[in-house]
Amino acid sequence: MSVAPALNMAGRATIDGTAIFGPLSFVAPAGEWTCLLGPSGVGKSTVLRLLAGLGDEVLFLGEASAGDGASLCGRVALMAQSDLLMPWLDLTANVTLGTRLRGQKTQQDRARQVLERVGLADHAGKRPNALSGGQRQRVALARTLMEDRPVVLLDEPFSSLDARSRALMQDLSAEVLAGRTVLHVTHDTAEAARLGHHVLLMTRRGITSVPPPDSPIPRRYDAPETLEFQGRLLRMLMEAE
């Protein structure tokens, strides 16, 4: 993996003349985990899509770029709310999808390693349908690791999981994605309080940075400072509307 760059975003976006998000600007520092927290419909996902080079339907005026000045193309991996696993491929083939789509040689050994890392090595030959929702999201994480990109964009990847699977997934992701620049879109204040080195609160009025506790991530879900911060985030969300 090359050195992780910071992410810079400044500008405003419209779709067919309707404003998606107003003028805003933020920086996601290099090699750290930034949570973009906000209610539904404020354009969080659009921010992520623009950074991922998607969103052809969006008219974006501004810049979405890497801090080192080089192009983001080929340096970004994406993990969405839906696991996006291909039901006709087994787990190994799903994890190595990127290499095959690019026409590169697949590295079976590495696929095995990343599946081991997310605790699914024993299931390598299974199809996604045979797994639980939490396991499927772990495969999606393994696929993201396999891509080995310095920037990882997370679009509410844990929101459809039950509370226990979600907490486990948060721990695992914080561990395996350490050192990369992560921009994590979420509407869950507890998640932002656990995972963000930086937490950006996005509302219709724009983006505010809310400094989280100093403790390392993933923060304990029952630590007083985590709970206090979570409460503060929720209060700010309530007051913003």
Partner: peptide
Amino acid sequence: GWLELAHVMNAMPGRILWRIRVPA
């Protein structure tokens, strides 16, 4: 979602057709 995933992975267009669109 699958097409966007492929796009972010810098997939070749022919491979998107044969490895994602056709099987899907």
